[in-house]
Amino acid sequence: MQIITGRVWKYGDDINTDVIFPGKYTYTVTDPGEMAKIAFEDLDPNFAKQVRPGDIIVAGKNFGCGSSREQAAFCFKYAQVGAVVARSFSRLYFRNCINAGLPALTLPQSPDIFQSGETISVDLQKGIIRCTAGEYSFPPLPEAVLGIFLEGGLIPYTRKALGFSNTQSAEEKAGE
């Protein structure tokens, strides 16, 4: 597993999926590039304009509460966010991140240990976050869930489990 390095985007508690990816777009915006442009539209309009590949979102408790919409996880993946670090996640949001192959890391410390804009690194294998304030460890993903994440998300994982190759398209497999 790689080390993720990126700048910190810091937010508070109970950030809900409506401010991450507004409900009015859930059936009309489906293109990955367009979805990335909507990320955090109702919370921080600068985010989508300025986010860079690898950047890391840090937040307080209950990140991603509200709707089940997985676009709220996928929009960050499409914006090439490196990881989401929070004190706790809503269960649906956590599942959606794993299913999207987006690292969702639960760090017991307050997000205040991070400075907005500072560059931090996340070592997924060792479970360590390095920032200006020091080194902090986070618990590993449960083993049953780690497999999905390592495969790049639920769909590649399910394809593999059903015997389809992930380097081969579904149509190719069907044509065999």
């Binding site: 089940s68 959606n96 998300g153």
Partner: peptide
């Protein structure tokens, strides 16, 4: 309980 869209797709498959 609620689940995500990909999870429903996976249930349809498996």
């Amino acid at each position: 309980t609620g689940i995500g869209r990909s999870e429903m797709a996976a249930i349809m498959a498996t």
